[in-house]
């Protein structure tokens, strides 16, 4: 399997902190026909960021951008998590011991698998470390 299949592309859409802005952004995503597999809303005093894993992120990126929204692509890693106690610990422990810092993460669930998308300083290294510890990662083709 090619390595770049192991790195996922997240779209980060910047949203002004004011009532109704998320609805406006969600409306644009709908117009663009973008389907979100997972998402996370981060807010600060400054502005919000809608982080999303979508079908065909490169195409979605262009469509969203053409609507005048500010959007960034960010590399992230998906960790497959078994539905049993301790599986998050196992993955986090492996990364921690390898000196990989997790900036943020959010959960993902589909019909047949559960997981966690994480943003780390070195996604390639994180994917390698997880694989060599025997932890499944979620590949681009599997979402």
């Amino acid at each position: 399997m090619m390595a770049d299949d192991e790195i996922l592309t997240q779209l980060s859409i910047f949203v002004n902190n004011e009532p109704g802005r998320l609805a406006a952004v969600a409306g644009i995503l709908k117009e663009c026909g973008v389907n979100m597999k997972a998402c996370n809303l981060a807010e600060s005093n400054e502005f919000g960021i809608l982080r999303a894993i979508v079908d065909d992120p490169d195409d979605a990126y262009e469509r969203i951008k053409s609507k005048g929204l500010i959007v960034r692509k960010t590399d992230i890693v998906g960790i497959s998590i078994d539905n049993v106690p301790g599986s998050l610990f196992e993955a986090a422990d492996v990364l921690g011991k390898a000196g990989i810092n997790i900036d943020y993460g959010y959960a993902y669930a589909s019909k047949d698998r559960e997981g966690l998308f994480i943003r780390v300083d070195d996604p390639m290294k994180a994917a390698e470390v997880l694989k060599s510890a025997g932890i499944d990662i979620i590949r681009r083709s599997e979402i």
Partner: peptide, 16 residues
């Protein structure tokens, strides 16, 4: 500036 916007909130806080 748009090219300096980052998804990294820690970096944004540092800029501020």
């Amino acid at each position: 500036e748009e090219r300096h916007l980052t998804d990294d909130m820690i970096r944004m806080a540092e800029m501020k």
